[in-house]
């Protein structure tokens, strides 16, 4: 019993290693199946696709980190995108429109945050309701029709296609947001507060942390990030589409949970790896002209496998240790 053998590498490293091997083998498989996969152009394509998923998933990471779930972000993001498109059609400057879209995200996030953090309503159902209201509001701007007006002339599509040092702007936005989020989550006191609330709300409360506030902030960040992500989609497509955010739910949850499985906590780097992995698989399938719905299947399969994998490891770990039981008084 006492001879607990420590392997040459720790559990975390082993998980990471497995993930990297998996990642590389998927890359290899795709490049063998399709010569265009490794082309610069496709790589940039993948990166653009990654940035959409990764930014929204980054926001979700905050909510999962505080121990909650948000099922509204992909619907509130539709509202933000439509608000932006509507303002663009009114002829406002694109930066102002983007700011308005983000503000819309903030408001919806604050709504969800207050309902869940302050009034303690169950997170899943209330966010479904709030998301649905936001989605309904998104129809307000054009009654559900696409908004094309002014899109090309306002400069927002140019903004999307612009490059800095050869890197597309959305990718730069993603990089900046991830850098900021990494610093906040891993290096700042705010990150500590998010994680401590997620790990143990009561203990965080007894350590003087304003639990309610932290939860509200997490929901606000989540909604704002989702807004950014869907506005990028709109700019890329050159129109405002009510349903442009609806495809985000699955890949975002799978990105966060793949990262969760690899790093044993919802983390910025983990989510990024998960998002890259998810987007790459979706792209690889598209390149091979496999229909989109199969990639859906693969993504959900991936989500299940990632969690299964972490569960198996956990159970083998538990089996090695003596049974943990609550101490008696």
């Amino acid at each position: 019993m006492n001879k607990e053998k420590k392997g040459p590498i720790s559990n975390e490293l082993f998980t990471l290693l497995v993930f990297v091997i998996l990642f590389l083998s998927v890359l290899a498989a795709f490049s063998m199946l399709n010569r265009n996969f490794f082309s610069v152009r496709n790589m940039l394509n993948i990166l653009k696709h990654v940035s959409v998923i990764a930014i929204a998933a980054l926001g979700l990471t905050f909510v999962i980190a505080v121990g909650h779930a948000d099922i509204s972000f992909y619907m509130t993001s539709c509202f933000s995108a439509m608000l932006m498109s509507w303002l663009i059609a009114r002829g406002l400057s694109p930066l102002l429109c983007i700011a308005a879209g983000i503000a819309g995200g903030l408001v919806w996030g604050a709504f969800s945050g207050f309902v869940v953090g302050r009034y303690k309503l169950p997170d899943k159902i209330s966010t479904i309701a709030i998301g649905s209201i936001a989605f309904g509001m998104a129809y307000l701007f054009s009654d559900g029709a696409f908004i094309y007006t002014n899109f090309t002339s306002s400069g927002i599509t140019d903004l999307n296609n612009a490059r800095l040092f050869g890197i597309p702007v959305p990718v730069l936005i993603m990089a900046a947001l991830y850098l900021a989020a990494y610093v906040v989550m891993e290096r700042s006191k705010y990150g500590r507060q998010f994680y401590s609330v997620g790990y143990n709300k009561k203990a965080a409360f007894f350590s003087g942390i304003g639990v309610d506030r932290v939860i509200v902030v997490a929901f606000v960040v989540c909604s704002a990030m989702a807004a950014v992500s869907t506005m990028i989609t709109s700019a890329a497509q050159g129109n405002g589409n009510v349903k442009s955010g609806l495809t985000l739910l699955m890949p975002c949850f799978s990105a966060v949970y793949i990262g969760f499985a690899v790093f044993k906590k919802p983390s910025v780097i983990g989510t990024f790896l998960g998002a890259v992995f998810t987007a790459m698989i979706q792209n690889g399938f598209t390149l091979m002209s496999v229909p989109f719905y199969y990639s859906d299947m693969v993504v959900s399969g991936l989500l299940i496998l990632a969690i299964l994998f972490s569960r198996f490891e956990l159970s083998s770990q538990l089996a090695r240790r003596p049974k943990q039981q609550k101490e008696g008084r």
Binding site: L121, S126, M137
Partner: peptide, 21 residues
């Protein structure tokens, strides 16, 4: 419109959840 019914349903859901909680 669709948007009205969506908002009404969402509000009803929030109402239901609040009462339950």
């Amino acid at each position: 419109s669709y948007f009205m019914s969506q908002i009404i349903k969402g509000s009803l859901l929030i109402f239901g959840v609040s009462v339950v909680t």
